[in-house]
């Protein structure tokens, strides 16, 4: 088994295989990524950059969607 890292996903610890990109994280959690905004360490990661952005130990990832609001 490959080595694991731990990132923080929406404030919760999330283990990931070393070398995982943002796009890998999205498939692991079952999101197609189309309606999700991704921030890594407060930086927006646009869809075209998600497979190139490799996550590191301790990275803080925020995934945001549109929910109901007035």
């Amino acid at each position: 088994m490959s080595q694991m890292i731990t990132i923080e996903l929406n404030g919760q610890k999330q283990p990931l295989p070393t070398g995982s990109a943002v796009s890998d994280l999205l498939s692991i959690i079952g999101s197609d990524g189309k309606s999700v905004a991704v921030l890594v360490n407060q930086q927006i990661i646009r869809p075209e950059n998600r497979s190139a952005r490799i996550l590191q130990e301790g990275d803080e990832v925020e995934l945001l969607i549109f929910a109901g609001g007035g």
Binding site: K34, S35, V36, E62, L63, I65, G68, G69
Partner: peptide, 21 residues
């Protein structure tokens, strides 16, 4: 139509309104 930003929660997929709206 107004919407709000919320954290993604895989247990509440119905919350994601972007597609349906």
């Amino acid at each position: 139509v107004t919407v709000a930003l919320r954290r993604f929660n895989r247990e509440q997929a119905e919350d994601d309104l972007f597609g349906p709206l």
